[in-house]
């Protein structure tokens, strides 16, 4: 549904987005990750046709965004970053306007507004001016605007930003449910959100895509993924690390914590972790008071930090 090819955007000398390509099919929820200023919003603005790309191509359905913008835009629902709304209108007026500009007429407007209001829990503020809404309601009003025409494609820039935990949960559920039938792109800073909602994630840093895969795949690339974490009580730290280092297949041992007689250490296997290695570690720990022993599955945020953030972390 969404096809982005070699998308590049420069603002003067600054390259905001550099040669980004990806596709999103129907039934996919693509999480867009990256540090602030990585080019997430700029990419989304080009996908939705707000910014023209400096180079590259965006195809929505079968329509080229640059050459055929109106039919392309018709397929998209868009929630911009700051969730802007016309503050001089009521929620109902704003949503009716959105429905009408999307080409709905007459009763179809009423049905669409009703549906969106129900999905976004806006009944209580329906006739309130957008001006007077709290941030959460404003955000959901703009969200409602983006789904008013039941679009095939949804592009959302930080849809859960500024919401309370309950609202975040509601919106995530909503995205997940809609993701079954639509093609969705959304950006976020919250990595747990990606695991909860996305079928695929892209990490973008300084304008380029640095990772692209399912959340599980990305997690497996985390530096600690596959390592075995061991916590024992009543043994000296040197004894623990020494014995673990001697385990067959261990590449290196990292002492995580040594506190009040409790030692936490991490053993990294040479090759990818397997049952035998964990058994070997278990055998080495025989006789110690083991409080915890498990294979780490890796965390998305560890992976995220290892490939973005600081200038020292080069891939």
């Amino acid at each position: 549904m969404i096809k982005v090819e070699n998308l590049t955007k420069t603002f003067g000398p600054k390259v905001a987005v550099n040669d980004v390509s990806f596709t999103v099919a129907r039934g996919e929820v693509l999480g867009f990750l990256g540090p602030n200023g990585a080019g997430k919003s700029t990419t989304m603005r080009m996908v939705t046709g707000f910014l023209p790309p400096t180079a590259g191509r965006v195809t929505i359905g079968t329509h080229d965004m640059l050459e055929d913008p109106v039919p392309a835009k018709r397929l998209i629902g868009y929630l911009p970053e700051s969730a802007p709304c016309y503050s001089d209108m009521t929620v109902h007026g704003f949503l009716s306007f959105a429905a009408e500009i999307r080409g709905l007429r007459g009763d179809a407007i009423k049905t669409a507004v009703h549906r969106a209001v129900e999905m976004c829990f806006l009944e209580n503020v329906l006739h309130q001016s957008v001006d007077t809404l709290s941030k959460g309601y404003r955000h959901r009003t703009c969200f409602a605007q983006s789904i008013i025409h039941d679009p095939e494609i949804l592009v959302m820039d930080e849809p859960t930003d500024g919401l309370d935990p309950n609202q975040k949960h509601e919106i995530r559920q909503l995205i997940k449910r809609m993701g079954e039938k639509k093609a969705i792109i959304f950006s976020t800073h919250i990595l747990e959100e990606v695991e909860a909602v996305c079928s695929r994630a892209i990490i973008i840093d300084r304008g380029t895509v640095v990772a692209n895969g399912t959340p599980q795949e990305l997690k497996r690339k985390a530096p600690n993924a596959g390592a075995i974490l061991l916590r024992v009580n009543g043994v000296a730290a040197e004894a623990v690390t020494g014995k673990l280092r001697a385990v067959d297949g261990a590449e290196r041992v990292q002492l995580v914590k040594d506190e009040n007689g409790t030692v936490t250490a991490r053993v990294f296997p040479k090759s990818s972790s397997n049952g035998e290695f964990s058994k070997a570690v278990g055998a080495a720990a025989q006789g110690w008071r083991v409080e915890e022993l498990h294979i780490e599955e890796g965390k998305l945020d560890e992976y995220f930090r290892s490939i973005t953030a600081s200038d020292t972390a080069k891939k």
Binding site: R45, T48, G49, F50, P69, V70, P71, K73, R74, I76, Y78, P80, P84, I101, R102, G103, C142, Q145
Partner: peptide
């Protein structure tokens, strides 16, 4: 940003 991403010229 909303206005310019609506299906209008």
């Amino acid at each position: 940003e909303l206005l310019m991403t609506m299906p209008i010229t």
